[in-house]
Design a protein around this nucleic acid. Structure first.
Length: 161
DNA sequence: GCCAACGTTGGC
DNA sequence: GCCAACGTTGGC
């Protein structure tokens, strides 16, 4: 099977790439995903060692800011069972079992150049990329290998120590 | 199982 | 802050 790449969105006001970098081992669990399609990607297709673009949404200049790596495969997202969490899910709580999952990711590279959404829209090579489709809102998406390579090249990733 | 109402996402 | 797109919920 060909290598699979991913893109995950986050709102930097809530949780930014730098927030991830600044955590211990630059690693965190990616919780709060409450969309079935996104969950299924994580549950069924996320494998240790795969690489993920981190995308900043809902911000002044939305775009891809860095790269992370999957360090732990899907496991139950316990925040769904915590009434105090903003990701609390009553239906999961009723069953006593979370219907949601999360993965752990570790930040590995920061882009020296932000690859903005506007930049990407101007690149004919990225035609058909899920992120650029009108009205798309999926917070976890697969990225095709040629798209990955091109965006990475433009982003000039710098390895984090 | 339909579908209207509602909530959320996210660019602009 | 606006609003279009789209997913989810819940009444029937």
């Amino acid at each position: 099977m060909a290598k699979t790449y991913w893109l995950m969105k986050t709102e930097p006001d809530v949780f930014s790439f730098d927030d991830l970098v600044n955590l211990k081992n630059s690693t965190d669990h990616w919780d709060g995903i409450r969309n079935y399609q996104a969950r299924n990607f994580m549950r069924d297709q996320f494998k240790k060692g795969q690489q993920v673009f981190i995308y900043h949404s809902n911000t002044k200049v939305p775009g891809i800011v860095g790269i992370a790596e999957v360090v732990r495969e899907a496991y139950p997202d316990h925040t769904a069972l915590d009434p105090k969490s903003k990701y609390f899910d009553p239906k999961s709580a009723d069953k006593g079992e979370s219907r949601w999952v999360m993965v752990d990711v570790k930040a590995t590279h920061r882009f020296r150049n932000l690859v903005s959404l506007a930049d990407m829209r101007e690149m004919p090579e990225l035609d058909g990329m899920a992120l650029l489709k009108p009205g798309q809102r999926l917070s976890i998406q697969p990225v095709e290998a040629p798209h990955w390579s091109l965006i990475k090249k433009i982003g000039k990733p710098e390895k984090l120590s």
